[in-house]
Simulated assay, not measured.
Amino acid sequence: MAYKIALAGIGKIARDQHVPAIAASPDWDLAATVSRHGSVDGVEAYDDLGAMLAARPDIEVVSLCMPPVPRFDYAKAAIAAGRHVMLEKPPGASLAECHALEAMARAAGVSIYATWHSREAAMVATAKAWLKDKTLESLHVIWKEDVRKWHPGQTWIWQAGGLGVFDPGINALSIVTEILPDPIHVTASELLIPENCETPIAASIDFAHPGGARVTAEFDFRKEGDQFWTIEIEAREGRLTLLEGGGALEIDGKAQTAGPATDALTGEYPRLYANMARLVRAGGVDMDLAPLVHVADAFLLGRWITVDPFIE
């Protein structure tokens, strides 16, 4: 049986990832969209979530794809209407509102899922399995991309709550928190804020690791030319490098291939929607907030440095 789902927020990520993943899955039937600016051909469209919830009690699940700041009110309304909720990353604009949404969902007896699409990249599970019994010596994240290419016209990303460079950077942190067998925490950070923006265009973070390994990350939205979404890991037993945002993997310099379990579903978002279907069937909740904790701590502990204005 396919669940009827509504997609709220019809922007680039919804069109490129969510709509195709839903269409390709036997678990889902895209029954409605909610957006002031977009729609999907052949799908009933609303410009108000409350109107959709009232008109379509048959829709069981709402997937939220709008920017993080308005997401709380949408999720709260959907939960209050008894609908299961799927949250695009980051799951909210603050940790407190994410905790509140989880409590609401549990009280209402509905499922809620904080998705981290980069955890579903092809080689992340292989990296996690390799690291399980290794002695970590260092881990370094290099996440550098051209914001003008990947986030054109997205002014919300530069406003308070938009995360700035941490909008993609949190993808790296979602992988790190998934593959490391031991928890880490932020000890220091440096945030470069354009003088006309409210969020960082670049950042670096130092972490503490319980075994004393050196763990660092650098994020930059100003990278032209080659783009980097890389995690470099040195262990006592060997070297692992995740490339292409977790889509490719080298161990001791040798390229690895994905196993049969990864091949069962093609792509990060199809796997997210398969996870959501399992949660709904089981009445489960998945609100892992570890990546967002690191971003919040980077802001709390950060040394703020004003840099040249960002001009798109």
Score class of each variant (00 low, 15 high):
residue 200 P to M: 02
residue 216 T to V: 05
residue 222 R to D: 07
residue 229 W to D: 07
residue 207 F to W: 00
residue 177 T to R: 14
residue 195 E to Q: 14
residue 180 L to V: 06
residue 182 D to R: 13
residue 183 P to H: 10
residue 183 P to E: 11
residue 218 E to R: 10
residue 222 R to H: 09
residue 218 E to Q: 14
residue 194 P to A: 13
residue 222 R to G: 01
residue 219 F to I: 11
residue 192 L to R: 13
residue 197 C to A: 13
residue 203 A to C: 10
residue 189 S to W: 04
residue 208 A to I: 03
residue 217 A to C: 09
residue 196 N to H: 10
residue 198 E to L: 11
residue 215 V to F: 02
residue 206 D to W: 08
residue 207 F to H: 03
residue 180 L to I: 08
residue 225 G to R: 15
residue 212 G to P: 02
residue 189 S to P: 06
residue 188 A to C: 09
residue 201 I to R: 11
residue 185 H to T: 10
residue 193 I to R: 02
residue 176 V to G: 02
residue 210 P to A: 05
residue 180 L to G: 02
residue 188 A to R: 12
residue 220 D to E: 12
residue 210 P to C: 04
residue 222 R to Y: 12
residue 188 A to N: 15
residue 196 N to D: 13
residue 187 T to Y: 03
residue 217 A to V: 03
residue 222 R to F: 06
residue 208 A to H: 10
residue 180 L to A: 00
residue 209 H to D: 04
residue 187 T to S: 12
residue 187 T to W: 03
residue 196 N to P: 14
residue 224 E to F: 07
residue 229 W to H: 13
residue 187 T to F: 01
residue 189 S to R: 05
residue 200 P to Y: 03
residue 174 S to T: 11
residue 200 P to D: 07
residue 197 C to E: 15
residue 230 T to D: 15
residue 174 S to F: 02
residue 213 A to M: 06
residue 221 F to V: 04
residue 198 E to H: 13
residue 208 A to R: 10
residue 215 V to M: 06
residue 197 C to P: 04
residue 221 F to G: 06
residue 225 G to W: 11
residue 204 S to F: 01
residue 178 E to C: 05
residue 212 G to Y: 08
residue 200 P to N: 09
residue 214 R to L: 06
residue 173 L to D: 03
residue 173 L to G: 02
residue 195 E to T: 15
